[in-house]
Each structure stands twice: as C-alpha cells, then as structure tokens.
C-alpha cells in the first residue's frame, strides 16, 4: 500500500513540479538576458496554481460524470485533450520565445508567453491535482488503515517536490547559454512526452487503433520503480511504448527542435544580437 501510494503521488507531483521548474528557469533566463524583470514570476505562478487547484477540485468532484461520458471513456478523452493542449502550448511557447536581445521584442511577446505558461501549469496541476484529490479522498475513508497510504503519499510528494526544486537550481546554476540549452532540451522532451501520453490515452479509449510495441525495456528499467518514475517525468520514459506513441513523441520533439528557440540555444546569443 505504501509503495503504491509513493509511486502514484510521485508520478503526479513530479510531472507538475518539473514543468513548473522548467518554466520558472525560462522566465529567469528571459529576465537575465533582457536585463530587466519583464516577466514577474509571482503573479503568473500564483494565478496558475490557484486556477489549477480550483479546476482539479471541480474535476475530481465530477469524476464519475466525466468517466461515464463518451461511452465510458470520458476520462481518457479528457486527459488526452489536456495532454494535447499542453503539448501544443509548449510548442507555441518555443515559437513565441524571443530570440532578440531587446526588451521591446520581449514585451511584444510577453503576453503570449505568459498565456502559454499559465495554461500549461494550470493544466498540469489540474491533471495531477485531480488524481491526488481522488487518492486523498480514498485515504480519508480508511481511518487508521490509511496510515501507510498517507506515509506513501508524503514520501512521493517529498521526492517529487524536492526533485523539482533541485532541478530548478540545477538549471539556474548553469551558465546562461548552457541553462538555455538544458531548458530547451527538457522542453522538447516534455512536449514529446505529452504527445505520446495523448496517443496512449486515445488508444485506451479505443479512438485510435493499437499499434505494435516498439520495444520492451522493462527488464532494464521498470516503469514502477522510483528511477523509472523519474525518467518518465523527465523524458517521458515508457518501458513498452507503441509505434504510434514513439512517432507522436518524435513529432513533439521535432516541432520544438525546429522552433527559433532551439536555433537560439545552439547558436550564441551574441550572434543573434549582432543580426539586429
């Protein structure tokens, strides 16, 4: 019971914490690179957390209604939509990211960037929060027997949040150029992960046909281990992905990689600045 709770809560918290850390690192980069505090951190983070928790509460209260819709695959369809929207917004974020070192250029795009970040974080919290709320509701009904589950939840949340914090410090501790490279790499992997998850959910809902498994690496790294969960949250690791999932993953990756932000990350900022 304890271990199940650890894995479940860790998976949910880790995903949301990593997305938040990644976007916070991007904001820090933007503010440093433009030399001004163009994007205020507190406002959009607080807005998205409040919105996410509120939506998660609504979602978990209407859990059965959502599950029963679309011929009892409503949950899969809703989650697939959330994943697709997140993937799209991450790609849009990559395309909107300012490549010129000018405050005016950034100001011009800041509204779009903030919109993408707020919605992505809100959706992450909605997705993960609603599952944790369901889970928490389950423990409350169990009384003393729920103690191992509670401990498991605390351990999962602790590992998830501390990994997010350490990832943020790791990203922001790098030099500004390397930090951007690492952020772009994680952004593309997260977008790929979202696309792959959306396909898996649509497969489960029978809206998409199943395709053969591309590989089986469960012997090498099990998805249910703590390391497997970390790899899942960081790079979207799956032990037995289908061919369609792998294709969607690569497509998400591709769209971020061909975006201007990648060109910026792999050229130096100075080259771009000299073109202005």
């Amino acid at each position: 019971m304890f271990l199940n709770a650890v894995v479940l809560v860790l998976q949910e918290i880790l995903e949301a914490a990593l997305i938040l850390s990644l976007l916070l690192a991007f904001v820090r980069y933007l503010n440093l690179a433009s030399g001004e505090r163009v994007l205020s951190r507190r406002n959009w983070v607080v807005t998205s957390i409040i919105a996410g928790v509120f939506l998660a509460w609504i979602f978990s209260n209407n859990f059965s209604r959502i599950s029963n819709s679309f011929d009892y695959v409503g949950l899969e369809i809703t989650n697939a939509s959330i994943h697709s929207a997140s993937c799209f917004l991450l790609v849009l974020f990559a395309w909107l990211f300012p490549v010129k070192r000018s405050v005016a250029h950034l100001n011009h795009r800041s509204l779009g960037l903030i919109f993408c970040m707020v919605v992505v974080v809100t959706l992450a919290i909605l997705r993960e929060g609603s599952e944790i709320m369901q889970f928490g509701g389950g423990i409350l009904g169990q009384g003393q027997a729920g103690l191992p589950i509670f401990y498991g939840g605390v351990v999962g949340a602790g590992i998830g949040v501390s990994t997010g914090v350490l990832l943020y410090y790791a990203l922001t501790g790098l030099s500004i150029e390397n930090s951007l490279k690492a952020c772009v790499l994680l952004l593309s992997l997260t977008a790929g992960n979202m696309a792959s998850q959306a396909i898996l959910l649509l497969n489960q809902a029978d809206w998409l046909p199943f395709t053969p498994t591309a590989w089986d690496s469960s012997g090498l790294l099990s998805e249910s281990s703590v390391l497997g969960q970390l790899a899942y949250a960081l790079i979207g690791y799956e032990a037995t992905p289908s061919i369609m999932q792998v294709s969607a993953y690569l497509l998400g990756l591709f769209f971020v990689i061909i975006s201007p932000i990648s060109r910026l990350a792999w050229s130096t900022w100075h080259d771009e600045a000299s073109q202005i």
Partner: peptide, 17 residues
Amino acid sequence: ATSIVSLLTLFNFVAAV
C-alpha cells in the same frame, strides 16, 4: 535552506523507499 532541505528530503525519502 531550500536546497539543503530538498537534498535531505530526496535522499532520506528515497532511502526510506
């Protein structure tokens, strides 16, 4: 403070698991 507590939490909790 946050990095030390995060490191302690991460290592302690992984060790606990």
